[in-house]
């Protein structure tokens, strides 16, 4: 059973989302502040953290920075669950470090689907890594491919949140795009095809 950690300063929402996640077969840990979240993380590692941004006194971005800088926590996937409409500068600075962005309010159905999509994506990456390792792709290539795939997925996610007009401003920079294509070719050489279309997410 996968464990999800919910971090939000609104107890009602924490209660309600916990209930929904449990009903859908996830184990849930909750924290009502950034500090509480970081304390818990010192003892256990969840499979996914759903992190609110607008919190006092430590906001979500600060918590994220802490998580990403801790040795035992830096690889834990973090998905932002926020009422805050994303800003361009936030997108560009945080998107490499997060694994999803969910706008509140969100229906339970959507929340469960987004969480499910995320785990399926993790599985896909795991399979990819295993297969690539089996077929003799070098470690650096694999690591870079995974990172770029995650980044690509985030860009796609933000574009879908901002809509066609504002979304145009968000994109992978040309160098990353080129590198991404090179890696895809390398992987293709190992018989691994990355099917982007199949990975596209709806928010």
């Amino acid at each position: 059973m996968k464990t999800i950690m919910l971090v939000d300063d609104n107890p009602t929402l924490v209660m309600l989302y916990s209930e929904v996640l449990r009903r859908n077969g996830y184990a849930v840990r909750t924290a009502l502040s950034g500090k509480e979240c970081l304390d818990i993380l010192r003892e256990s590692s969840p499979d996914l953290i759903l992190l609110d941004i607008m919190m006092e006194p430590m906001d979500g971005w600060e918590v994220l920075t802490e998580i990403r800088s801790g040795n035992s926590t830096k690889t834990i996937p973090v998905m932002v669950l926020s009422a805050k409409y994303p800003q361009y500068d936030e997108i560009s600075s945080h998107s490499p470090h997060i694994d999803g962005y969910v706008m509140k309010p969100v229906t339970h159905e959507s929340l469960i689907r987004i969480v499910g999509d995320f785990f399926r994506f993790r599985d896909y990456l795991d399979t990819l890594v295993t297969r690539a390792e089996e077929r003799g792709a070098d470690e650096a290539t694999i690591r870079e491919s995974v990172a770029l795939l995650r980044h690509w997925r985030m860009v796609e996610m933000f574009r879908s949140i901002l809509g066609p007009d504002l979304g145009r401003e968000v994109s992978m920079d040309p160098e990353q795009m080129e590198r991404f294509n090179v890696l895809k070719k390398i992987l293709a050489g190992h018989g691994i095809t990355i099917d982007e279309a199949g990975l596209r997410i709806e928010s």
Binding site: L13, L16, V20, A83, Y85, K104, P105, V106
Partner: peptide
């Protein structure tokens, strides 16, 4: 206004979560 928006979305989120349950 955007900050206000965030504050509006919180109760909206609660309403959604309760109603949806």
């Amino acid at each position: 206004m955007a900050i206000l928006n965030d504050q509006i979305r919180n109760p909206l989120s609660v309403i959604t979560a309760i109603t949806d349950l």
